[in-house]
């Protein structure tokens, strides 16, 4: 066991997998010599050489597009996009090719590749550094979308993502990159992609969150416990494909549902989750399934961002509202 934060868990996963499988290559902007702007790849170039971990020119479409060719030709590329807000020039590659290659070639070309990117707000950053774009990827057939919320999950899910035969978008909640540490096993382990985690068992309401929001919900639960409201908290961990069963079974038990996410509200992942609840647990519902999300506005710059970021009190207030419906 070692005490790791989310960033060092990424580094450890990459390090172990590069050591285990010499087809794994790691690259992107500032990824090689410097070890990434968040230092997720620090030390890897020194350890594995410039063939396996390297800097690229500043071009997101070519970073992602070259990874397609790499994967076709036998490698397992793990590429880094510096911030999810910079992925947009690469969407032509992700949506147009990465997601479609397997289907287009009727299974001849699998693309075992991972596109890592820090995402989400709350770090008082410049424009284009705070977006939550999980819905764009989750809506695209052929992709898997994974978001870890703890160092333990980060390591196990990243190892699973690299070994997955399908392309995985690995979104890293940068607000909690260094927020806390956790004991993480030294040895190799994988967590299943497509399975949610029951964080907290409860009986009055099911709350689903992921990434940095899991901790915000946990913070909200402290007050509610004293008030006698029993919350079942589920960390979704994989946005696509969604673990329907875990959610439906939980709502069948609690009869109430809240999803909390920072991505925009309309057409967002919360809408999808509520549909799943309606399809699978409609007759068990005691209150309307509800979402607490980012507003449908361009995410504000730092001086206005506090209104956009969801706070624990908002979460506990919303839970009280639903429970007393």
């Amino acid at each position: 066991m070692a005490l790791l934060n989310n960033i060092s868990a990424i580094t450890e996963a990459l390090d172990q997998e590069m050591g285990r499988d010499n087809t794994v290559v790691v690259y992107g902007e500032d990824v090689g010599f410097e070890g990434g702007v968040f230092r997720a790849t620090v030390g890897l170039q020194k350890k594995y050489g410039k063939d396996r971990c390297f800097d690229t020119p500043l071009a997101e479409a070519a970073i992602i597009g070259s990874a397609v060719g790499m994967a076709v030709n036998g490698m397992k590329p793990v590429v880094e996009i510096q911030f999810s807000g910079f992925v947009l020039p690469g969407l032509n590659q992700i949506i147009g090719h990465v997601a479609r290659y397997r289907n287009r070639s009727r299974g001849r070309y699998n693309l075992p590749m991972v596109i890592r990117m820090p995402y989400g707000g709350g770090v008082r950053a410049l424009e284009h550094h705070s977006e939550s774009l999980e819905d764009i990827f989750a809506q695209t057939p052929g992709l898997k979308v994974v978001i870890p919320s703890t160092p333990y999950d980060t390591k196990g899910l990243l190892l699973a993502a690299i070994r997955d035969p399908d392309p995985v978008i690995f979104l890293e909640p940068k607000r909690i990159y260094r927020a806390f540490k956790q004991e993480v096993p030294k040895e190799d382990y994988v967590l299943p992609i497509g399975k949610a985690k029951l964080v907290n068992e409860g009986s009055d309401i099911t709350v689903v969150a992921w990434g940095a929001l899991v901790r915000e919900v946990q913070n909200a639960l402290k007050d509610l416990k004293d008030e006698g409201i029993s919350v079942e908290l589920i960390d979704l961990r994989t946005i696509s494909p969604i673990d329907r069963d875990t959610i439906i079974k939980s709502v069948q038990k609690t009869g109430r549902f809240l999803v909390v996410h920072e991505a925009y509200k309309s057409f967002g992942p919360g809408a999808e989750l509520i549909s799943i609840v309606n399809e699978g647990a409609f007759l068990y519902l005691e209150a309307p399934p509800t979402r607490l999300t980012g507003f449908d506005v361009t995410i504000p710059l730092p001086k206005g961002e506090h209104h956009f970021i969801i706070k624990p009190k908002q979460i506990s207030d919303k839970i009280r509202e639903i429970v007393s419906f």
């Binding site: 070519a62 597009g65 070259s66 060719g69 790499m70 030709n73």
Partner: peptide, 14 residues
Amino acid sequence: SQLPHAVGIGMASN
């Protein structure tokens, strides 16, 4: 959009 794929194949060849 196919050209980056070609380059990636070559990066792997190297």
